[in-house]
Amino acid sequence: MSGRKHRWGEASARRAEELLVTRLTEGLDEPTAHELDYLLRDLPELDVESFELAAAAVELACWQGLESESESEPMPLVLRDRVIAGLGS
C-alpha cells in the first residue's frame, strides 16, 4: 500500500515538473494550469522558482554571448522615455 502511494507521489512530482517546465517555456492553458496548481499543493518541497531562475540563467548566458559580440540591440531612447513616463503616472 505504501509502495503504491510512493509510486503515485513520484509520478505526480514528475508530472508537476513537466508542467512547470512547459509553463516557463511556452505557457499553459487554463485547465493544465489548474492541474499544476493542484499538484503543487501536495508538493511543497518542489522549488518552483528555482526552475524559473535556471531558465533565466540560460537566457542570460546566451544574451551575454550576444552582447560580447556587440550584436545586442539597444532599447530605443523614445521607448525608454515612454516607459519612465508611464511608471510615473
Binding site: R23, L24, T25, G27, E49, L53, A55, L60
Partner: peptide, 21 residues
Amino acid sequence: KASEAAFITMIARRRLIDLHR
C-alpha cells in the same frame, strides 16, 4: 537567491510568455 539580472529576466520571461502564449 539570485542576482538582480536573473530576477529581472525571470519576471520578464513570465510576463512575455503570458502575453504571447
